[in-house]
């Protein structure tokens, strides 16, 4: 039986892992290689690196980071953050990343999904979608949540899979950082609408939140950052809990 996945997310700036809230108060949290190795040993099923570097050197440091991480760990990992060129996708995949996540760039240029999935396979293309509820609709936001678009979230999710995305990483901006649990309502509908795997993101605060996302919203994977970084919830403890509650996980 296909296991449900637990995915720690690491924010990276200038080749170092940073911790903070909403891109401010960033503290250096160490080398990506050391943390990747730690999470891999603790039982993470995959890792996501989100690059928040703004400098012109971005691509160079990111490719170097991917090479180093790929040498160190034997589990799959995704790289995202400001990737907008097919050539950059190729460089990162060849450096050893398994998947690329695309966010703002595909809103402006949806064809990028199709081109990337044709060339590298849809399993390598993750559509990262940030959504926020405005009282009547869920809307898509880009640029790290700073810019609202007119896209209706569920329609955009459906569209990216039609274009060739092989997975959706869905972040609820309303829940992000709240520790109130994942947005089960949206995720449940999403899981029934699309046939690609869905990764839930935003809001995890305790073990029960993961269980509910798997059981009630039928997601394929759960992503979290601070819970794992600050060791509030060790991955082993989480997975044992999920297993005891009837979820297929890799232990």
């Amino acid at each position: 039986m296909l296991c449900k996945r637990i995915i720690p997310c690491l924010d990276v700036k200038d080749g170092r892992v940073v911790k903070g809230t909403n891109f401010v108060n960033l503290i250096d949290a160490g080398s990506p290689v050391e943390l990747a190795d730690r999470y891999s040993k603790e039982g993470a099923d995959e890792l996501v690196f989100l690059d928040i570097t703004a400098s012109a050197e971005k691509r160079k440091t990111l490719v170097g980071l991917v090479k180093d991480v790929a040498k160190a760990i034997r589990i799959p990992f995704t790289v995202g953050g400001g990737i907008s060129e097919l050539h950059d996708i190729e460089l990162l995949l060849k450096a050893g990343a398994d998947k690329i996540s695309l966010n703002s760039s595909i809103v402006k240029n949806p064809e990028l999904i199709t081109k990337a999935s044709r060339q590298f396979g849809s399993q390598a293309v993750v559509a990262a979608i940030d959504v926020k509820f405005n009282g009547s609709d869920y809307k898509v936001y880009i640029k790290g949540g700073r810019e609202k678009t007119d896209l209706i979230a569920m329609e955009w999710c459906r569209r990216v899979t039609e274009l060739g995305a092989g997975e959706i990483l869905l972040t609820s901006m309303d829940r992000d950082g709240t520790k109130e649990g994942y947005d089960l309502k949206f995720l449940k509908e999403l899981s029934s609408v699309v046939s690609v795997p869905v990764i839930a993101s935003g809001g995890a605060g305790k073990k029960e939140d993961f269980l509910r996302a798997f059981k009630e919203a039928d997601v394929d994977a759960c992503l979290a950052a601070s819970l794992f970084h600050f060791n509030i919830l060790p991955i082993k403890e989480l997975k044992n809990y999920l297993k005891e509650n009837g979820i297929a996980v890799r232990i």
Binding site: M1, L2, C3, K4, R5, D45, S195, V196, P197, R250
Partner: peptide
């Protein structure tokens, strides 16, 4: 078949 399972089949399996 996307009607019968998630496609791609992605993750750790027995």
């Amino acid at each position: 078949d996307p009607g019968k399972s998630k496609v791609p089949h992605m993750g750790w399996n027995d």
